[in-house]
Amino acid sequence: MSDIKLVNVTKQYDGQPLPAVDGVTLDIAAGELVVFVGPSGCGKTTTMKMINRLIEPTSGRILLGGTDVMSIEPNELRRHIGYVIQQIGLFPHMTISENIQLVPGLLGWDKTRSRRRADELLELVGLDPVAYRDRYPRQLSGGQQQRVGVARALAADPPVMLMDEPFGATDPITRERLQNEFLRLQAELRKTIVFVTHDFDEAVKLGDRIAVLEERSRIAQYDTPERILATPADDYVASFAGSATAIKRLALIPAERLPGKPLNVANGLPTLDKGGSARDVLDLMIRWGTAQVAVDGGKAVDFETICGLLGDDHGR
């Protein structure tokens, strides 16, 4: 399987007093989405680019499914790793379908197969193949282009994907929609993904685990979003996590999983739509001034339940 192991990886540029990446050691389990989050210039992108050898490490080892990446021919390696960048980088002189077929073409798939694959992927990212396959990138909106960017990275069904702030250049509404679609996609595909962002909220929303990086890509904390919010390792992580972390943690708990009482149909409580979180429950309570909210599925959740949710490890 395609787990990723970074062992003491360092990148030292000539003429720089300090390394850009300083001795990073990190295990990423197969099928896991790990977010590298940190301020601009902290070396998170450099760390990611060493996985597909766009940047070569000065020392240390990177293992992909147990194989040292330095032992694989770089172009061959990259064809088996999906790659999405912030600027999307769709080739303007190729149609949407041709863009998606690029890596299958490099891998020597026959035309019919890669064309069918392109249609399949357009469908997967929510674009009608008949309407979009023969268009050119500039005929698509930014959000549509980014969907094609993801489809292109998925074209040859790589087990590993590297994503460098893929949703960074889109407006907040489009970004949220892309994030939701992406989560749905990942739940289905279970790729091993390294996702780079400087947006902590995006990291919390998307990551199975988050690596909070300091300068020179040193890992301040590597844990699940819940635990980073609940027990930040140090002041740096706490400041990065920002304020209202308890509220942010509530957002990670789906309302369906909350304990509740059977609902009396006639009581006229405010009702939460399907797919909401514990934070949405609290929001409804505050908005309506009630201590009880009906959650889709026929139960009533109490204010006390919400207050007790964060339980033992409330990190005071």
């Binding site: 766009l54 064809r79 088996h80 490099l106």
Partner: peptide
Amino acid sequence: VDSALLEAGRGMGMSRRQ
């Protein structure tokens, strides 16, 4: 030519000649 395109091409495993 936009350097992002070249970066995308390289990241996808295109050789210099390609």
